[in-house]
Each structure stands twice: as C-alpha cells, then as structure tokens.
Simulated assay, not measured.
Amino acid sequence: MSLQTSTRAPEEYRSLIDNLRDFIDQEVIPREDLKAVHDGDALRRVANELHALALTRGLGAPRARPEDGGLALSWTECCAYLEQAGRSFLGPLALRCGPPTQPDIFALESLATPAQRERYLQPLVRGERASCFAMTEPAPGVGSDPRMLSTSAQRTSDGWVINGHKWFISGAMRADFAIVVARSEVGPSWFIVDMDNPGFQIVRDIPTMEPFDIGGHAEILLKDCHVKADALVGEEGKGLAHAQLRLEGARLFHCMRFIGLASRAMSIAQEYALKRESQGVQLADHQMVQSMIADAHIQLYAARQIVLDVARRLDTGDSIRHHSSMAKVFVSEAVYQVADSAVQICGALGISEDTPVSMILRMLRPFRIYDGASEVHRSAIARRALNYRLPA
C-alpha cells in the first residue's frame, strides 16, 4: 500500500494498543456466540455493530488511510495491533483487517486504475463492499503449482470472455465482486468480475473445519463470463507477480492474527491448570504441564520475533519473499502446536465447545495449507538457499 511508516510517539502507540486490548476484552470477546459460529448473517450483524463501536474508540483498519477510517499503521506497528485484534474470532472482522478483504485492498492499492479505485477499492476500504480472490481450482487446475492455471480469458472486441472452474474461494459467499485469475494469451492475468455477472455462478459453499467463517469457501463456475476491457487489473500476463504481491502482506497479517488466537488458547489453558487438581496437586504443578506451557511461550516469543523482523523489512521497502515464506512456515506450525498443547492441558474440556479452545485449534490448522502449504514453502526456501533455478 502507498503508506509511509507511522510517526506515532511510543506513548501514543502504547495507548492505542491498551485501548484495543480493552475493546477486545470488554466488547468483542463477550459477543462471541459459540453456538452461532456458522450463522453468517448473525456474525455479519455483530461484526458491523462492533465496527461502529470500534470507530467511536478511535480504532479501525490498521493499514487504511485516516480519511477512510483507518489508522495508517506501519507494518511494524501492525504486529501488536493485529495480535490483539486476533485474540477474538470477531476482532479482525470488527476492525476490517481480516481476509480476503485486507490482502485484496493491499494489492488493489498498487494495481487498480483510477476507475477501479472509485468503483471497487474505495467502497471496499469503507466496508461498503466485499471481495474475494478466485485463484484455486480443482485438479488438474492450479493449486500449489501456479503453472497449472487452467481458467482461460479470451480477448474479444470489447473485453474478455472467461471460462473456468474455481473452488475453496474464501469469502465468496458474501462478496460483491471477485478478483479472478485466468490465463490469457500473454499469461496469467487478473480480472475484476461482479458477482451478479450472468456468467459467474456459485455452485456451493464448501464446508470446512473452521468456525466463525462468515464468508464461506465457494465453488464457482465461470461459463462464457463476459467482462469489459477495463476489468483487467494491473498488467496482462503479470498475474503471478501480482499474486505474490498480494500474498506477502496476507501471510504476515495471518501470522499476526493467529499469534493472538494461539496466545488466548494458552491463557485459557493456564487458567484451567491453576484451578484443576490432579493426583492431589494442582495441574499446574505437574512438570509435564509446566513443560508444555514453557514450550508454548518459547514458540510464541519466537513467532513474534520472526514476524516483527519481516514487518521491519517491509517498512524499509525490502523484498520479503524469502523471509515471509520462512515466517509463514514457522508461525503456522508454532501456533498450531501451542493450541494443541492448550487442548491437551484442558483435557476433555479442551475438545468440547464449552470453551473456545477446540475452535481455536480448528481455526489454526488450515493455516498450514492456506497461502501455500508448508511443504511447498520449504521447497521454495531450500531452492532459493541453494540458488537453484526452476526451468522456464
């Protein structure tokens, strides 16, 4: 995004984080209804109410401009902000910093034409419209290997005709428009497609293990889907480079939010360990439990430091492709292990839905797949480390 590093004074920033922490504790977490985790309409209503309340507190989207209701935080400042927001399932929704909206905004800030900014980006930033990013396809289409992209875009006299099959498109069930990745004669390209386009069909909402998922994960068919010439986003044939731009910020925001969610799970487990007795002593006095708690805090500390380092690199304008991959792999696995330990400490209560712990575990597990599976990132990290060059 076209933002400079924030110049907030340290005391002003600490006050902002304290305000946010209090907002999440006092307003957001109490509004979580564990029985309504799959009720998208109810969650949207609550998120909108919380967003209005957040604005009265001077809280908003961390990277958006102040004139759009945002805070214009630097990437470094986002670390603590997003961790606090992420402690609640509803926090990122209330603060307009959840996926896919946030990474779509990040990409469109750099790529959108003036007309696209007015029609799509600005309403997206203001929360008046919702977006989704349609890239993943069923086999044999694109998954982890971008070279397998099969959705096509054929040029016409006044635009493009798109044909293809997409699935697991996060947020599509509530989106107003999609950023569709399709292959033109030049190469992979991006196109904005309104959801009411006659050639754009949502087949179904694919159920997943995640609770509090208000946007769903849609399966989509594009059949003779005609869009105007001005639907092209960025440069034709540069779709994979555009996707990398989008993913770098998205991975980091995921990491920040999920550190907050994992830390909340461990906090719940620690409170339980201090109350529950086992074999005549508090659960917290057992060395095996202490070991799990200690390892969790080590993992959270390491996760925060690696994310902070990547955020600083972003603020200085460095390329973070290599470092964001390492951060994504480490953090996705660390936060899941922390949540898994929290479940183990809580025992049977941990696998129930009487507390949010089991839901936190289910929220964190897909991150090892989303935005690139850990195995794919490890391969890319190793190849770059070995200075290996992929064939054209």
Score class of each variant (00 low, 15 high):
5 T>F: 01
5 T>D: 02
8 R>Y: 05
10 P>K: 02
13 Y>T: 06
16 L>K: 04
19 N>H: 08
21 R>L: 06
27 E>K: 14
33 D>N: 13
37 V>I: 12
38 H>Y: 13
42 A>D: 10
42 A>N: 09
43 L>D: 00
45 R>D: 13
49 E>C: 00
52 A>S: 11
52 A>N: 09
53 L>N: 04
54 A>P: 05
54 A>V: 09
55 L>M: 09
56 T>E: 15
56 T>D: 13
60 G>N: 09
72 A>T: 09
73 L>H: 06
73 L>Q: 06
75 W>Y: 13
79 C>T: 10
81 Y>A: 01
81 Y>N: 01
83 E>G: 04
87 R>C: 05
90 L>T: 10
92 P>V: 04
93 L>Y: 15
94 A>H: 02
95 L>Q: 06
97 C>S: 06
98 G>F: 03
99 P>Y: 00
102 Q>R: 04
102 Q>L: 11
102 Q>Y: 03
106 F>D: 14
109 E>I: 08
112 A>S: 14
112 A>L: 05
116 Q>R: 09
134 A>P: 01
137 E>T: 06
140 P>R: 05
144 S>C: 06
144 S>R: 10
148 M>V: 00
151 T>D: 04
153 A>W: 00
162 I>Y: 03
166 K>T: 12
169 I>T: 14
169 I>N: 12
175 A>C: 11
177 F>Y: 10
181 V>W: 07
182 A>F: 05
184 S>P: 02
185 E>S: 15
187 G>K: 12
193 V>M: 03
193 V>P: 01
194 D>C: 03
200 F>S: 02
200 F>H: 05
201 Q>F: 04
202 I>N: 08
214 I>R: 12
217 H>W: 14
220 I>R: 04
221 L>I: 14
222 L>G: 05
226 H>F: 08
228 K>M: 15
230 D>A: 03
231 A>E: 12
236 E>C: 08
240 L>R: 12
244 Q>A: 13
245 L>V: 11
247 L>P: 00
249 G>D: 07
253 F>K: 04
261 L>T: 09
262 A>C: 06
264 R>E: 12
266 M>Q: 12
266 M>C: 07
268 I>P: 05
269 A>S: 04
274 L>D: 14
275 K>W: 01
276 R>D: 07
276 R>I: 10
277 E>K: 07
288 M>L: 15
291 S>W: 08
291 S>N: 12
292 M>L: 15
297 H>C: 00
300 L>H: 12
303 A>W: 04
303 A>Y: 07
304 R>W: 11
304 R>Q: 15
306 I>M: 08
309 D>S: 10
310 V>Q: 03
312 R>M: 10
317 G>L: 03
317 G>V: 02
328 K>H: 15
330 F>R: 05
335 V>A: 05
339 A>W: 01
341 S>R: 10
343 V>F: 00
345 I>T: 04
346 C>F: 05
348 A>M: 11
354 D>T: 13
356 P>T: 09
359 M>S: 09
361 L>T: 07
362 R>G: 00
362 R>H: 08
365 R>V: 13
365 R>D: 03
368 R>F: 02
368 R>Y: 02
371 D>I: 10
372 G>N: 02
376 V>Q: 08
377 H>M: 01
381 I>K: 01
385 A>Q: 13
390 L>F: 14
391 P>D: 04
